[in-house]
């Protein structure tokens, strides 16, 4: 499974992304498990709302953090996310 560059990316409805006050961290929750996220991973996943594809997510985040050259890091993380089933590309 590899990331499709054109299709929009959506956070999986079988998982939940939520802020945990006790840990001061965003986490992904799924059946009987939890993954703690660092801030940048969480920011990427929050952009996966099913309307944006990879390039759009990259420009959104580069704009938000007033920086450039994020594409590699974001792509690498999203590949992992796809493999773990955290994100989907349906249409």
């Amino acid at each position: 499974m590899t990331l499709n560059l054109d299709k929009p990316i959506k956070f999986s409805p079988l998982h939940r992304l939520q802020w945990e006050e006790a840990q001061q961290k965003d986490v992904i929750l799924y059946p009987e498990g939890m993954v703690e996220l660092n801030q940048s991973s969480a920011e990427i996943l929050k952009c996966c709302d099913g309307t944006r594809n990879l390039d759009q997510i990259v420009s959104e985040l580069e704009l938000k953090f007033a920086t450039s050259g994020l594409k590699n890091d974001i792509t690498n993380f999203l590949e992992i996310a796809l493999k773990n089933g955290w994100i989907q590309q349906n249409q």
Partner: peptide
Amino acid sequence: KMGAVQLG
């Protein structure tokens, strides 16, 4: 309140 998040 203590931080439990998974509940069975």
